[in-house]
């Protein structure tokens, strides 16, 4: 069976201020149904560009990206994205935010509300359905953003450093929340981060990306058994994987 997401020899060139820039080159990536794949790389390596191409928000200049065997031509509800910045619609209540995708699909009102409540329960915000985004903390906003994408039942969850703006404790809590949700919903996730601990804690496979032009230089399978929680970050297995990834990344940072 072929993978849910297939990327073959993907390339992305920009015309920058100082001439053409190659952001991505020779990217091959398969993400299987139900897999949680994490891409780590130094900042500016093009990992967000890669995710944006999968989301259909940007287009590659060579190669191809397919979801469910179909070429990706633009954004769609089958690939829901959680951003690092807060993207809740401030004029909608928490529940209306979660209902947004369903409203676009034309799901009837009662059904929408029921689905939204279920996913708000899943992220632990059942009591906040009528709150406005401006009343929520950063961590709560990202919980709602996750619920909003899940309620839309995408084929794949795209996460662009979703916890990057949060403090360390909140980040841990949300990482564990994501692990729990993933186990329950069997979601397929493509996750971008520069935090190695986060990558190992979450991933089935960690892909290490090189500096510009970005390539995937290694795939590191993480065999730490699930369910995982923050305690695995101090285990010997974890340290061994981290050492390998650090080694690979260090070459990129210092090269």
């Amino acid at each position: 069976m072929s993978a849910l997401l297939e990327i073959r020899d993907l390339r992305k060139d920009f015309s920058g201020a100082a001439g053409p820039v190659t952001a991505l080159e020779g990217i091959d990536l398969d993400v299987a149904e139900g897999e949680l794949a994490v891409i780590v790389g130094p900042s500016g390596c093009g990992k967000s560009t890669l995710l944006n191409i999968v989301a259909g928000l940007e287009h590659g200049t060579g190669g191809e990206a397919r979801i469910d065997g179909r070429p990706i031509t633009g954004p769609g509800a089958d690939r829901g994205m959680v951003f690092q910045s807060y993207t809740l619609f401030p004029w909608l209540s928490v529940r209306e935010n979660v209902e947004f995708g369903l409203r676009i699909k034309g799901v009837p009102k009662d059904e929408r509300a029921e689905t939204a409540r279920r996913y708000l329960g899943l992220v632990g915000l059942a009591d906040f359905e009528n709150a406005l985004p401006k009343e929520l903390s950063g961590g709560m906003k990202q919980r709602v953003a996750i619920a909003r994408v899940l309620a839309n039942q995408p084929r794949m969850l795209l996460m662009d450093e979703p916890f990057g703006a949060l403090d360390a404790q909140t980040r841990l809590v949300l990482q564990e929340l994501l692990l729990g949700i993933r186990a329950q919903e069997r979601s397929t996730v493509l996750f971008i981060t520069h935090d190695i601990d986060e990558a190992i804690l979450l991933a089935d496979n960690v892909y290490v990306m090189s500096r510009r032009p970005g390539r995937l230089k290694a795939r590191i399978p993480v065999d730490i058994p699930r369910p995982r929680d923050h305690r695995v970050t101090v285990s010997a297995d974890f340290a061994a994987v981290k050492a390998r990834i650090m080694e690979l990344l260090w070459e990129e940072i210092t090269a």
């Binding site: 259909g56 954004p75 509800a77 004029w91 947004f100």
Partner: peptide, 29 residues
């Protein structure tokens, strides 16, 4: 209006016209 609001709407299935009506206009209000 933050660009990511429109992009988030797009990945939730909104068309260009829907992004205008449901995101840009209320966001700029």
């Amino acid at each position: 209006v933050p660009r990511d609001l429109g992009r988030a709407a797009a990945t939730l299935g909104a068309s260009r016209a829907q992004i205008y009506r449901m995101v840009l206009l209320p966001g700029a209000l």
